[in-house]
Nucleic acid binder design. Structure first.
Length: 765
DNA sequence: TGACTGTGGGTTTTT
DNA sequence: CCCACAGTCA
């Protein structure tokens, strides 16, 4: 079989070990995807049916790419393999089994916005202070609970969490959580975490032996990016694989060094537990990097060696070097944008790089703007990923809300959105009453509209009756009529179409186009959705309107098609995981930005940031450029930053400091020299030592250091700063919650520093 | 009911 | 700086 010849010995061994549990530790660029796809092809070639193979990925895009690559080896049956994200595959299973856990199979999926909005409503109804109870903060706390299998009941019994909440002065989080769960249930809705959580419940409670059905069905299970799975995902996987007499054909691929989703509950423990849980485990390490040149691989190895806790492996390459890593030092973020854009232009000409081989990466999405400006200036085509996905746009969500309602009238978020947009005489007050009544009688807002106890004007009642009739009509037709025709009619009858047509501004025309694009997408989906075949019933309704609505919620903007245009890619480092480009720009390499100041406060946060940096630089095949700015607009004002410590962790021999106005004009006030020069001048023999020195406090801090309240920070005061030591306040300005002090520090080569008091810890002496 | 204004608050990463 | 929301006015 020829495809096996395209593999190196370790890769081949992994591919052909088809029986029993297998762990593949795969360094960046080591052919991980190739191994995964060829293994599946290999299984298919040896007679395994495509629907017996399950492959779980983290993005739709990588699932799709994988299927396409398998297809190249074995032909169209590859498309029948069960390959998709955890969320989409689980949604599909839940669709089939929903009735067993008290959900309609046309359940709605709440995206992050829907969830936040439900929480906001609950907080309001409970009369809690919306500042203390920040809806999106609570959303992430609930999300983390679900990922760790903590139900509201378990939450209440968990003294640690309850104590935390009391300390944070929001003791009612657990009540919000409880209400939220109840509300989702009665709305027939699942949030992202529910897609995992409810599937876990289904398998745990195992009604009608449903678990056995899937254990038998999925004879070969694969997990990509295993390092990014969370506790809940691991628990589900375990239930599918571990049972009496199981062949335990589970094949997981991951790299602990690329674990970047700990904030979302991912844990490297899963890799360690995996070895314990599966004693027959065979482990393979893919250590040869086929992607990047030697400078890049060495730099990556050096960086990652600063992390303590990691699996032992050595990534190497035999690619020869042509270019050193370039470092761009800028005075401002604007200069960074300009010089990156200029360098891209130069690289394109000199090396004939197509735009599609170039990517600018950054830590936070908000950094994209400066690059956009300067790319536009040079007429370079680009595309920004990570923004709002098509399906999150207002006009699309409005339309989709109506569709959701037609399929699942219990969906309260959809109801709230649709009921009075376009306006039809049902006021906010009425909606509040509906919600309260639904809550009190444990029914839904949809049913509450008919409740005789509802105390609203006759006019409002009439409007609601009309609305209900309209939706009911759609509901009936949803069972029989084609989804496209129904949707087109909904667009008209809802009044949305007229509203959009009335707006002839360019944006308005765009909105109309977007809504029409939804219609096209529906017809494409329902006509052609190639349901994975199989002798079972699991996929029967897969091209329904409900399935479409569930699918789109799980799409990100990276999944959207029209990728044919040749453009430069702008994205966060997180979204770049799994991708590769000839030329990579990693930007904003400054302390408190990359690594992020948020991460620096978390235990192990720095390690995760470092893995993120590792992921960033290993995306590059040939050209790697790093940049930082000494001054950057953040929080509405210019802030001074120092270069990222990560720059110090790469040996000077791999670097080249790029000249430019910025460095020539350099104020010379940087605390540290640029790494290239530092290493060359031999100031620091060993970057590791240097980093360790740096992480230690540079000034003696008394053990009883205690941050003083903001009111005490006034001009003239002498203060102690954790990092810069003793100093004098020259002035304080800015709004009360975002005060900035200008401080002159004693032992500092900067004449003065602007310190954002919100972040700094200062003690008045 | 909708459009406008001011204010206040938040900005890590995503399925 | 930018966004979302609340409150105000027509």
């Amino acid at each position: 079989m020829s495809y096996l010849d395209e593999l190196n010995p370790v890769q081949r061994a992994a591919v052909t070990t088809t029986e029993g549990p297998v762990l593949v530790i795969a360094g960046p660029g080591s052919g991980k995807t190739r191994v995964l796809t060829y293994r599946i092809a290999h299984l298919l070639e040896s007679g395994v049916a495509p629907w017996e193979i399950l492959t779980l990925t983290f993005t739709n895009k990588s699932a799709r790419e994988m299927k396409d690559r398998i297809e190249k080896v074995v032909g169209p049956r590859a498309q029948q393999v069960w390959a998709g994200t955890f969320h989409s595959i689980f949604a599909r299973i839940l669709r089939t089994e929903a009735s067993k856990i008290g959900y309609p199979s046309s359940f709605s999926i709440y995206d992050t916005d829907d969830t936040t909005s439900v929480l906001r409503a609950i907080i309001k109804e409970m009369n809690l202070d919306p500042n203390a109870y920040n809806a999106s903060a609570i959303r992430s706390r609930i999300s983390l609970c679900k990922s760790n299998l903590i139900s509201p009941k378990a939450y209440r019994e968990n003294t640690e969490m309850m104590t935390q909440d009391r300390a944070a002065r929001r003791p009612y989080v657990v009540d919000i959580y409880e209400k939220y769960v109840a509300r989702c249930q009665r709305s027939g809705a699942m949030d992202f975490d529910d897609l995992l959580f409810q599937l876990y419940r289904l398998f745990r409670d195992n009604p009608d032996k449903v678990l056995e059905k899937y254990q038998k069905k999925f004879r070969y299970i694969h997990v990509d990016e295993f390092q990014d799975t969370n506790f809940l995902q691991y628990a589900i996987l375990r239930r599918l694989v571990k049972y009496e007499g199981s062949p335990e054909n589970v094949f997981v691929v991951g790299d602990d060094a690329q674990s970047i989703y700990a904030f979302r509950g991912a844990t490297i423990d899963n890799i360690l537990d995996f070895e314990k849980d599966y004693p027959n485990l065979k482990t393979f390490k893919l250590e040869q990097n086929y992607r990047s040149t030697h400078h890049i691989v060495s730099a990556a190895n050096e960086v990652i060696s600063f992390n303590r806790r990691q699996l032992n492996k050595t990534i190497w390459t035999d690619k020869e070097d042509r270019h050193k890593i370039k470092l761009i030092k800028c005075v401002t973020d604007d200069e960074e944008g300009r010089r990156v854009a200029d360098l891209i232009l130069e690289q394109k000409h000199r090396y004939h790089l197509p735009n599609s081989e170039i990517a600018i990466l950054y830590r936070t999405n908000s950094q994209s703007r400066k690059f956009e400006e300067h790319l536009r200036r040079l007429n370079l085509p680009y595309r920004v990923f990570g923004g709002m996905s098509f399906y999150q746009r207002k006009e699309v969500k409005d339309f989709v809300a109506y569709l959701r309602l037609a399929v699942n009238p219990s969906d309260e978020e959809a109801l709230r959105r649709a009921i009075n947009f376009p306006a039809r005489g049902i006021s906010d007050a009425t909606v509040d009453k509906l919600s309260a009544l639904a809550d009190a009688s444990n029914s839904t807002m949809w049913e509450a509209m008919l409740d005789p106890r509802l105390d609203v004007t006759d006019r409002a009642k009439k409007s609601m009756a009309t609305f209900r009739n309209m939706v009911q009509d759609w509901q009936k037709r949803a069972a029989t009529e084609s989804a496209y025709r129904l949707a087109a009619d909904i667009l008209k009858k809802s009044g949305l179409l007229d509203l959009l047509k009335g707006d002839t501004s360019p944006e308005g025309i765009g909105r109309l186009e977007n809504v029409n694009a939804v219609l096209d997408a529906i017809s494409e989906f329902t006509d052609s959705a190639a349901a994975p075949a199989g002798p079972e019933t699991v996929t029967a309704t897969d091209n329904s309107l409900a399935a479409y609505l569930q699918t789109i919620t799980l799409l990100t903007d990276a999944d959207e098609k029209n990728d044919s245009n040749d453009h430069i890619t702008l994205m966060s480092v997180h979204s770049a995981k799994g991708l590769e480009f000839k030329s990579i720009f990693v930007t904003g390499l400054e302390e408190n930005l990359f690594p992020s100041y948020m991460a620096l406060e978390e235990p192990n946060g720095l390690d995760e940031e470092r893995r993120l940096f590792y992921v960033a630089i290993t995306r590059a095949k040939e050209f790697l450029t790093l940049s930082f700015a000494q001054n950057r607009y953040r929080f509405g004002q210019i802030r001074v930053s120092e270069p990222s410590r990560f720059l110090d962790e790469i040996g000077g021999q791999h670097y080249e400091l790029l000249g430019g106005i910025g460095s020539a004009r350099s104020t010379g006030t940087m605390q540290r020299e640029a790494p290239a020069r530092a290493s060359v001048s031999g100031n620091f023999t060993n970057p590791r030592q240097r980093a360790l020195q740096k992480s230690a406090a540079p000034v003696a801090i008394p053990a009883d250091f205690k941050a003083s309240p903001l009111e005490d920070i006034v001009p003239g005061a002498r203060v102690l700063h954790l990092k810069f030591g003793e100093g004098k306040i020259l002035s304080v300005e800015g709004p009360k919650d975002n005060k900035v002090a200008t401080i002159q520090f004693k032992n500092d080569d900067m004449p003065e520093r602007r310190i954002v008091l919100k972040f700094a810890k200062l003690q008045v002496l």
